[in-house]
Design a protein around this nucleic acid. Structure first.
Length: 422
DNA sequence: TCTGGGGTCCTAGGACCC
DNA sequence: TCTGGGGTCCTAGGACCC
């Protein structure tokens, strides 16, 4: 049996841990630049605020209902996530951290008849140790565990836990689940399924294998099997190193000049390169992309350029140089760029890199030491203590993004600890 | 006026090889 | 009228996830 633990309205719950006044009130958390709604308390959901909705579309609702609005504070959410995961790891032999607010747990050490009670114990413990409310679905497969979690959330009588037992007939449960609520069925597939008059998880699971395979690829077939109780997606405790690492941002104020864009891109490369070093890889390629607002169709410009590096590297200055070449290839004067980003990929293991036969790579050991020292200093004194000059002052803290209502970094910055009493 | 960011996997089709 | 038949690799694009 597999359990899926899902933190309820995670970002909102993180804010509530440090601000009890928010309990019972409508609260939302916004994306970068305070652009879209990315988390909502139950009270905010009831008001009709949608996931991903642009802020300007719901200002009316917000003002009328005194909705509490927060800019995103990922330093806080990331740290709270780690606390939740550490707690879970004490109660399960295997834990797969699936996202910032979700984890799959192996439940095979718990007897069938004790699963629900065990789940309730986890709910209580995580709440007590971290302050974060969670819901748990337990089932024979990951896809069913996902469904079980949805049910657990919807019905308070379950106390945050819902179990689908392998031997029970759960057709009635599947009949209540619309196809769009199935893990792996998104917007396009929902449309397609409805066209075929397939409306519930029950309908979907009953379709013939070859038809599923043909219309929804191997992924759709796998999903159907999982709904039938046949496990196809294994618990993956240690996911592979990433195949690509990206850093992209929208700008609150559009950028027009090459210099401005290049400074932003240097900042993104710096971030991504640090992540690459953390997973002990070197990147063999880099892609840079820039685009104008995708909502203005009259003057839309969007272009990407990829550079293959002659030698895989994790050395920030080399990556910035390559990024500059890529930007030179796609930059056009006269546009108002609204978004830019970089992607690093084609990773090789840092410790097993092949040296190019004819190209002498000078100082590669020195480069390694430099990056090592930079990373150590930044880990100790803060991410922006030593940065590349190419970034430009404005980009050092990526301050081009607006976050007017960010809460303090309660758990990761000594200067921003929660003040109980002055 | 204002619209997030970071990933994964699969498939079809073309290039190329023997 | 006939016009080989498989492979592999790469890429772009489309779907999905949170």
């Amino acid at each position: 049996m597999i359990a899926l633990v899902d933190c309820n309205n995670f970002y909102v719950s993180c804010e509530r841990v440090f601000n009890a006044k928010l309990n019972g009130k409508p609260v939302i958390v916004l994306s970068n630049n305070d652009g879209c709604v990315i988390a909502r308390s139950n009270e905010a959901k009831v008001l009709g605020i949608k996931m991903g909705q642009p802020l300007f579309e719901c200002t009316g609702i917000i003002l009328r209902n005194k909705v509490h609005v927060y800019s995103s504070n990922f330093a806080l959410y990331g740290d709270m996530s780690a606390r939740v995961m550490q707690t879970l790891e004490q109660f399960a032999p295997q834990v797969e951290v699936y996202s910032i607010d979700e984890a799959f747990l192996c439940m095979k050490h718990v007897p069938q008849e004790e699963l629900a009670a065990h789940g309730r114990m986890l709910v209580q413990t995580v709440k007590q140790w971290t302050g974060v409310p969670i819901s748990i679905g337990i089932a024979p497969t990951k896809t069913l565990a996902k469904l079980a979690t949805k049910i657990a959330k919807k019905k308070p009588q379950h106390q945050g836990v819902f179990v689908i037992h392998p031997n029970e007939n759960y057709d009635e449960i599947l009949k209540q689940i619309p196809v769009e609520d199935i893990w792996g069925i998104g917007r396009q597939y929902t449309k397609k399924l409805q066209w075929y008059r397939i409306y519930t998880a029950y309908d979907f699971a009953r379709q013939k294998d070859d038809w599923l395979r043909k219309n929804f690829t191997i992924m759709g077939l796998r999903t159907a099997h999982e709904l039938r109780g046949i496990s196809c997606i294994i618990l993956d405790e240690q996911p592979e190193a990433k195949q690509a690492i990206a850093c992209t941002r929208s700008f609150s104020v559009p950028k027009k000049s090459f210099t401005e864009l290049m400074e932003a891109i240097a900042a993104y490369v710096t971030r991504a390169a640090h992540k690459v070093r953390t997973q002990k890889s070197k990147a063999g390629g880099i892609q840079v992309f820039i685009m104008t607002s995708r909502f203005n169709h009259d003057v839309y410009y969007s272009k990407a350029h990829t550079i293959e590096l002659s030698e895989p590297t994790d050395y920030t200055p080399h990556l910035i140089t390559a990024a500059r070449r890529a930007l030179e290839a796609i930059f056009r004067d006269g546009y108002e760029y609204k978004r830019a980003g970089i992607l690093l990929f084609d990773f090789v293991d840092r410790d097993h890199t092949q040296v190019h036969a004819f190209e002498h790579v000078p100082n590669s050991a020195a480069h390694h030491s430099v990056m090592n020292v930079v990373d150590k200093i930044n880990a100790k004194w803060g991410r922006h203590t030593v940065v590349s000059g190419a970034m430009g002052a404005a980009n050092i803290k990526m301050t081009q993004t607006d976050r007017t209502n960010r809460s303090p970094r309660f758990t990761t910055d000594w200067r921003e600890l929660l003040v109980v009493k002055k």
